[in-house]
Design a protein around this nucleic acid. Structure first.
Lengths: 258, 258
DNA sequence: GAGCTTATCGCACACTGTACGAGAGGGGCC
DNA sequence: GGCCCCTCTCGTACAGTGTGCGATAAGCTC
């Protein structure tokens, strides 16, 4: 494993980030019993079912009825495979064309889509910080968001910032939510059981964190339904965010140039 | 490797998430030449220097002048070590006590601190989605945030939602930013060189993403200084968010009960 | 047929996390 | 002193990892 010692394959030049997207695809005239798309889809299935640790090239190979190293013909290495998988997941995100709804509704739909895609495939979250995602599906998302926010009245760098903050909210919320869901799944416990487990620990730390402790005892977040709380928390943040963007728009009416 | 087959150490019961925080610490009366804190700090150094792939138990051991398996006395397994490392990093985040500033300024400082801690230690980002972070430093952060937002006028679940959205913004922004910075670092290229590499790819995808393409050519995000753009993008989002929260406060004046 | 390209695969290497059990060293008891 | 026990360190071993390399096979063009 270790740091890559430099690929020796001349056809795969490591331009920016060694990213898949920037090099020409493989020519193809042989007898392909394996295809890149097939590989990526199978990888996603494995990752969904067993998390990041569940994907190994050997397991993926046998799942496809192929030798492990056969995959390396279609995919430069595991990192690249993961990049492809991430973009594939981004392809699931539905973003409405503008005109179908208000920009505010459109932005909500987009963020919701992003959030739920990330929650369907939580392993993506841990990969987002590694490479910039500039696959075709990521680009399509960008296109739709630009369209949406342009119509809304954003332009220039503010446009990019607005789309970025929407994305950040989806990613950040999904991160926190995935952390909780993963713990629930891993332990197989119910929320109530977890709450009971954590209680004594929180009790012990109470004196050091008096305000939190007070809030916890008054509001009792651990008594509530986690699905509802998480959803509500995400939605609350989204609304505040959109309020803030709307406010900015009101104060900065569209100057048509950048 | 594989899924853990259940620890046989009776003193380390796997309650919630198998999390470190919920089990009693080791008794200690021997001749410790190694300590948990020392291990965690060394792990952080390795991770900072070489990223997630740079940390292996063996390397960590030799860095500490110890055998690899000696570490397992102080730390149940690698996952737990990472959990400890994450909390240690969260300990770097400075959150002002309320009264020192307005809640809005306090919240900004907190989010800034979170963001910069994540950017100093980008490997943390990939770990946040795996376990809920409830180490003492995470709790301290929670305490401060609750204090801050309570004074601001939030209460009940809205309080938790408000802190969550602030966190989400910091995490989400840091994720996007870390992705870019990691690519720059990995390739050793300047932003300008990267822009030139990506250009033809974007050009090729232009026809499919006309609005994005138009925006890109008018605004030229790739021509700008990335440090400034990223900082600005984060700050823009934060301001919109705080605006939104302030607006909510104005419309929902503090009912003192939950 | 020859020759070239595309694609698959077995083997090997360096490396991983960590279970296991053997040991060293010190403290408390008789 | 002698004894035991508890804390801590470490060597060895095992199953499993990503992937470089070279040997194949299968199809296309001449």
């Amino acid at each position: 494993m270790g740091r890559s010692k430099g690929s020796c394959m001349p056809s795969q030049s490591d331009s920016f980030t060694g990213s898949v997207w920037l090099r020409p695809p493989r020519a193809q005239t042989g007898q392909p019993s394996l295809s890149r798309e097939q590989i990526v889809r199978a990888a996603i299935e494995l990752l969904d079912a067993e998390g990041p640790a569940g994907l190994s090239m050997r397991r993926l190979g046998t799942k496809l009825g192929a030798g492990a190293t056969s995959l390396y013909w279609h995919v430069a290495n595991k990192d690249e495979l993961l990049e492809l998988a991430v973009d594939e997941v981004l392809g699931e995100v539905y973003v409405p064309l503008p005109g179908d709804t208000s920009w505010r509704m459109g932005a909500s739909i987009c963020a919701n889509g992003m959030r739920s895609a990330l929650l369907r495939h939580p392993w993506v979250i841990g990969l987002l910080g590694l490479h910039p995602t500039l696959g075709p599906n990521a680009m399509r998302l960008g296109e739709r968001l630009v369209t949406l926010f342009t119509r809304a009245g954003f332009s220039g760098m503010a446009l990019s910032h607005a789309t970025a903050v929407l994305n950040s909210h989806a990613i950040g919320s999904a991160t926190s939510e995935a952390a909780i869901r993963s713990a629930l799944k891993r332990t197989g416990k119910t929320w109530k059981e977890v709450a009971e487990d954590v209680e004594p620990y929180l009790e012990r730390l109470g004196p050091q964190n008096p305000h939190y402790d007070k809030w916890r005892k008054e509001t009792g977040p651990l008594r509530q339904d986690p699905d509802q709380v998480l959803e509500e928390s995400y939605a609350f943040g989204l609304e505040r965010l959109l309020d803030g963007l709307e406010m900015w728009l009101a104060k900065n009416p569209g100057q048509t140039s950048a």
